[in-house]
Design a protein around this nucleic acid. Sequence first.
RNA 1: CGGGGCGUAGCUCAGCCUGGUAGAGCGCUGCCUUCGGGAGGCAGAGGCCGGAGGUUCGAAUCCUCUCGCCCCGACCA
Length: 438
Amino acid sequence: MRLSRYFLPILKETPGEAQVVSHQLMLRAGMIRQTAAGIYAFLPLGLRVLAKIEGIVREEMDRAGAIEVLMPTIQSADLWRQSGRYEAYGPEMLRIKDRHDREMLFSPTAEELFTVIFQNGAKSYRDLPRNLYQIQWKFRDEVRPRFGLMRGREFLMKDAYSFDLDFAAAKHSYNRMFIAYMRTFARMGLDAIPMQADTGPIGGDLSHEFIVLAPTGESDVFYDEAWLAARDTSAVDADDADALEHSISGLNTDYAATDEKRDLAAEAAAGDRLKTSKGIEVGQVFYFGDKYTKAMGVTVQGSDGQPVTPLMGSYGIGVSRLLGAIIEARHDASGIVWPDAVAPFKVALINLRVDDAACLAACEGLYAELTANGVEVLYDDRDERGGPKFATADLIGLPWQLVVGPKGIANGVVELKRRATGEKTELPMADAVARLLA
RNA sequence: CGGGGCGUAGCUCAGCCUGGUAGAGCGCUGCCUUCGGGAGGCAGAGGCCGGAGGUUCGAAUCCUCUCGCCCCGACCA
């Protein structure tokens, strides 16, 4: 993409509306614009990151055996009356009426609809287990939206729903999602720590929140410093229920809890290893048994011919919130520092002198070659001085900057800079291309 | 929803207390000089001062109402 033809409205100064750094940087980097409290428009750069995050979530869901669907955002009130939540949900649910005065709502979550759709297509125990998911916009009319995308009213969420015949199978489904979440967040360059979460009336220990440590997070968290070490979950076989259970209980031996679930005895046991931080919740997994299937009269026929009420779990990831969380965790004084996997472009190609024939020719050649080889390049071909170009590249945080200037070209070299470390290397053009293709 | 704050140019803000011709920096447009980390000069464009009432000879400024946004608290992917 040529920057001279792109839509990248960057801001030199921080808008007063933004308080947290991720919100400030997203506005400054021309990724989003607020249109109302807690409601945002995604500009091209922000959309590219959103799509990258969505892609990783989708890949890991698919890998875990979940099946993608897409439900409507607008649902009828009748559906929600069946579970009793239409009355229970309160003013956080955005209620609307259509032209015939029928009561509708903008979905804040989708247990009811998934339950009904599942029943519609599953009649026998042979149709289980299944896990259906979607990546869809939700709306929750928060009393007080804040922190930009971290607490918006409209937000993009991945929500998955598992259906199983018995508790052991349901727990395996839960574990599959658990390990998929570990992998998902790790791929985005995040250290997300699973923490025991409130299970409500169901009880048990089958709910975890995944928390990203960040100084601007919303909740206070307490954890064993052992969590700071990298955890490689890539080798875990999610199809083997026992091995998976073993891996997950192994992971959960180290203490980690949010403010409301603190265990002072466990904290005492952790001793000096106990750390405290702020955290951002980026996902939650939850087992709730037959809460919805029972309320909505869902059964399948068991192998003995008798009806069985499926047991469910639901699993959320705040996809749009992750943009904020990643920036909170990965930025510096100059701007965003994207992890490679979610960067909107891989490299900023910076032409320091668009009026220099040799410089221009070199850039055009590099741009063509990299693009032809599938490298996502944002080519700064604007008629600007070097300063603003460097500042823009740092602000939008692309992992690499390929800097081409007349001095270097005269010596047959270009400069390759790694955004995360600031490390700069002068090298021949061909070598720079090879490095970016590697 | 309780408490607090703010709405003036695209952005950051001054002006309001003490009413009298709408301001600055940055950005934007044009020209010139510059050209390897947000350059300099000259010339410009751009605002019914959130909206509606009121007081006044006269309102960005005072009063009333209203809408919007932000912050703190209680609640949440």
